[in-house]
Design a binder for these strands. Sequence first.
DNA 1: AGGATACTGTGAAAACATTCACAATCATCA
DNA 2: TGATGATTGTGAATGTTTTCACAGTATCCT
Lengths: 212, 212
Amino acid sequence: MISEKTIERLSQYRHFLREFLKENVDHVSSSTLAERCHGQSAQVRRDLMEMGYRGKSTRGYDVEDLLAAIGSYLDRPGGEKVALCGIGNLGRALLTYFQGSLSNLQVVAAFDRDPHKTGRVIHGCRCFDIEMVEKVIAEQGIQVAVIAVPGPDAQRVADRLFAAGIKGLLNFAPTPVRVPPKTYVEHMDMTMALEKVSFFTRQLAPARGAPK
Amino acid sequence: MISEKTIERLSQYRHFLREFLKENVDHVSSSTLAERCHGQSAQVRRDLMEMGYRGKSTRGYDVEDLLAAIGSYLDRPGGEKVALCGIGNLGRALLTYFQGSLSNLQVVAAFDRDPHKTGRVIHGCRCFDIEMVEKVIAEQGIQVAVIAVPGPDAQRVADRLFAAGIKGLLNFAPTPVRVPPKTYVEHMDMTMALEKVSFFTRQLAPARGAPK
DNA sequence: AGGATACTGTGAAAACATTCACAATCATCA
DNA sequence: TGATGATTGTGAATGTTTTCACAGTATCCT
């Protein structure tokens, strides 16, 4: 099985390849791409190998072709429909974020329990009352969801989502959630991330006068 | 040097230890803690070893004592002051998020270029015009910043932050930023995260009728 | 007190990820 | 056409992280 690390990097390569495309670059070498990503060229080549891609040698990779290859490897054919729970500041930010990027991912439904927030369409995404969650997920065959509700509600919402048939979850709530087997969950722990930054910053820039 | 993975897990352990504390549990074994974190007990023990902690054996770790140890290892004594750039939906969400958690991290200043958003105090955090960024960072001796501005502005803002003396950065913009040497940056790439969820979800739950 | 029990701390093994290093390939140009 | 040079694909080496497995140790119970 392919590693998470490799998938992450493929997603990154795609980002930079799109930039190259905009700059009208039509071929990139593994080393050029690696440079942009702060990585090693051998790593790039191996990642592409992992997904079974063979570039034509000597002139580097054809940007468009490689983009297409990564797309057909990473993306769900026909697009991935995503449900979003929580239309607070974070939820709205996520909508802007995801709907902005012309990507395979499409947030097709958002849920909240506050009636003031539902019934509208935000960035092309319909907002429903949370009570509709089972119905909408079933009707649309949605498999992936994002949680952006306050911590205390996260577990309950997650349980409902999985009961409704969701298989993959991206969780922005401050609390990790327990999930059923045979599902995939990614916890975006922003506190952890900031603590990490704080810690490693201190490692490189210790307090004035402190020893190395 | 200690690994990023270990720091991430220590931060997680702390989260669960606080839960145990609330539940009036006063001792936990490495295996109990590991279970909560979906990890291995040996991993927990090794992580604690890495940070030089020695529990008293046979009754597990004293929850309060271990919390204190992790705190004094991870946290900057006196608290880490953090600057936030971008007071849009995401910025406000992050303020709620970080100011809510009773943590060592304190967002002491937020910046935006929209005059409608500045001059206020949100969740105890003063909002300034972006033009004040150098002044405020210097005055307060802030070392860590969070970027929550739109993609196209991210690099420019990052440059200003580092020029102003920031050493560590948590970047929520959709674009990675280039940073000076001797600094630490963490890119929270939400698109990547969601693509990853989409991909691995498909690995475990392929389309109806597809082969395993 | 002494034996049984439950746990830690850690060396060593295994698994996993990255990097090296080089043969193979192919555009390009004299 | 054949030599040149850039670049790939990948086996092997290296480096890192996780897991195993067990000696050592404190507590509890009788």
